[in-house]
């Protein structure tokens, strides 16, 4: 049965959130979640890279990798595509918002190795999505990742004013919060089967 692209889009955001259900892309999730502004910026960057690379990955896989029997080169080809698009995003962000550029710092180029992106690309190939589904899945995953990081940033911003046991300050409490958020999201998983 063909799952509608719209369903995949919303499922990728809410019920099969790439971060809170699949736990991909944790590294920058924990590091850039201290301020909402920076996390929105990084979220948008990830969404852009994920959406564009999903479309390209679909075409590369469908028309080049499979016909020429070079599925084993999928990883390297996908990573090269991701790296190129991250470079592009870097050039664009440096041009339009130097402050965001400085705030994201090393995590901007590190989107390249954000496993949420490579993970999503591999998912859409494994799950045999068509073109529309691929784009919907890519954009949904990106927005889902952004939703998760912005939510965590919001909580962490308010947490500045609350008493945290010293041993749990920083990443410790962030991981516990992520766990609680994840519990809420896992509760919805399976509502829309997308694979």
């Amino acid at each position: 049965m063909e799952i509608p692209a719209v369903a995949i889009f919303f499922a990728a955001i809410f019920t099969s959130n790439i971060l809170l259900v699949n736990f991909l892309g944790m590294c920058s999730f924990l590091s850039i979640s201290r301020e909402i502004k920076a996390s929105v910026g990084l979220g948008l960057a990830v969404t852009f890279v994920l959406t564009t690379t999903s479309a390209i990955a679909y075409f590369l896989n469908e028309y080049i990798l499979v016909p020429f029997g070079m599925e084993h080169l999928r990883y390297i080809v996908f990573i090269v595509v991701i790296a190129a698009f991250v470079q592009l995003v870097e050039i664009v962000i440096e041009r339009i918002s130097p402050i965001l550029y400085i705030n994201l710092g090393i995590f901007l180029p590190l989107i390249t190795v954000n496993c949420a992106i490579l993970g999503s690309l591999l998912f859409l190939v494994i799950r045999d999505y068509n073109f529309l589904q691929s784009i919907a899945f890519g954009a949904g995953s990106g927005l889902g990742w952004m939703l998760a990081i912005v939510a965590l940033a919001g909580i962490r911003q308010r947490m500045k004013y609350s008493k945290v046991p010293p041993a749990l300050e920083g990443p410790g409490i962030a991981l516990i919060i992520t766990g609680l958020m994840s519990l809420a999201f896992v509760g919805f998983s399976g509502m829309i089967p997308i694979q």
Partner: peptide
């Protein structure tokens, strides 16, 4: 032949992306 073809394809993809980045560097940056 297959090996050469595969290498050629990967190189072509890389070259295409390099051209894209070069254009971005030329016009956006």
């Amino acid at each position: 032949q297959v090996l050469a073809l595969h290498v050629g394809i990967v190189v072509a993809i890389g070259a295409l992306l390099a051209v894209l980045l070069e254009l971005a560097d030329r016009f956006i940056a």
